[in-house]
Design a protein around this nucleic acid. Structure first.
Lengths: 237, 237
DNA sequence: ATTATCTATAGATCTATAGATAATGC
DNA sequence: ATTATCTATAGATCTATAGATAATGC
């Protein structure tokens, strides 16, 4: 009847816990619950029962949407890295741009995404389970993102120990976001530019060039309207 | 310090798997097995059976040394942070020293310890389980180490956004070591000075001052004989 | 007599599957 | 007829405890 957010047609047996008030689809409700519990309690320590019940379902009903527990984690991880990867590709495709400004923009976008999600999905990168076969696609995407950082470093000028420097840069992004997250009062708007500045300092940029990159990114933002999106639960498959 | 490796008197029922050839005490064998499996497979995913059997014992025998599975993790975590903390205290107690050189030395020591251990114990810091009550002492020690980094940053000169900068520095250390560890060919001797250099770049040091700090640390090393120790399994309790 | 280890197991899970059921849609 | 959900459960764990045993030490 009303034009906004009317409950979607409710086919199927009703939920034992009563109808959900969420705007999210059931599949998204399950993902959101998994994100919260995996980041709070760890992957292995989180039971499928806990995920399903936080989503308002019984344990077995979760399997209507995800055939295995691993599929939850793989979906979440891929949704975290894909937007940054897409952003990196557009930056690399503009060979006339200032590489320092591009690195600043990518570092800010990536760290805002990692930081700004409802849950600290970045922490999931370190999970040992991620070495498994099911996560090959995620690892591939992450390696491609690392290559984008390496390429931007290279465009900025000759880099001694390029691979090591690239790893330190990626480590700063992931570790820095994780460390700053420990203070619950911080915001992505405050942390992400600070991480981007730090990335340029790490790359050896002098202060003036960092300031220029920051200005340049602000101008590009205005054109593109590309403030880092944090809707990491956007449908993935 | 003491004895060279003669088999210790073997009181008690013999092991079903036969006597151990390790030089480590049984307790240390259990810790080493736990370190390997926790870092490789995760804490929750590692069973007490797997730990015990890698140590050459039956599952229940592990409980002769550790009353709970959590005690394994707490012991390992504390052993990883305590040496860096002790080193940091000696650096802070020398107010005449160059703070940039001290920061370089601490960053190198800490990252060598994190990197150089047999296993990547640094990755365990991120484990959600570490938020639990049993790990309060570890978190206290880690917070004290963070304060030491903050104090050294402050001594180097006025720092805007000190807390955020400190978090980024700590993030670089932990994240950088984790990222560089993904290439199995790297060594602590190569990574640790590179992390220390990166820490000073992050702190805004110009290249000459970094070179000076590096030289200074090398001189202090020679006096002190304090190459970062990586015997993270030294008895802790 | 003390110690380090063993065997056995209680009790509590946990994942994933099988098959039933209560809605809407045609 | 299709769908989303439910109930029930098989089978496989896992942690921690109880109590026995096979060494050395006194």
């Amino acid at each position: 009847m009303s034009g906004t957010a009317f409950p979607r047609p409710r086919v199927g047996r009703p939920r034992a816990a009563g109808p959900s008030s969420s705007e999210l689809s059931p599949r998204e409700q399950v993902l959101a619950a998994a994100a919260e519990l995996f980041t709070r309690n760890g992957y292995a320590a989180t039971t499928t029962r806990a995920v399903a019940e936080l989503a308002g379902l019984r344990q077995a009903s979760m399997y209507h949407y995800f055939a295995r527990k691993e599929d939850l984690l793989a979906t979440l991880l891929e949704s975290t890295v894909e937007p940054s990867l897409a952003f990196a590709r557009t930056l690399l495709d503009d060979p006339g741009a200032d590489p320092a400004a591009a690195l600043w923009a990518l570092a800010r976008y990536d760290s805002a995404l990692l930081f700004g999600g409802l849950y600290n999905l970045g922490a999931l990168y370190q999970l040992p389970e991620v070495r498994g076969e099911r996560f090959a696609e995620f690892r591939r995407a992450r390696a491609e993102l690392r290559s984008a950082y390496r390429e931007l470093l290279t465009r900025m000028g000759p880099v001694p120990e390029l691979e090591l420097r690239t790893d330190l840069l990626v480590g700063l992004l992931e570790g820095g976001v994780a460390a700053t997250r420990e203070d619950p009062d911080r915001t992505a708007a405050e942390v992400a530019p600070a991480v981007a500045d730090a990335a340029l300092r790490l790359a050896g940029c002098p202060a003036e060039r960092i300031a220029a990159a920051r200005t340049d990114a602000a101008r590009t933002d205005a054109v593109r309207g590309a403030t880092a999106r944090t809707d990491e639960l956007r449908e993935v498959s």
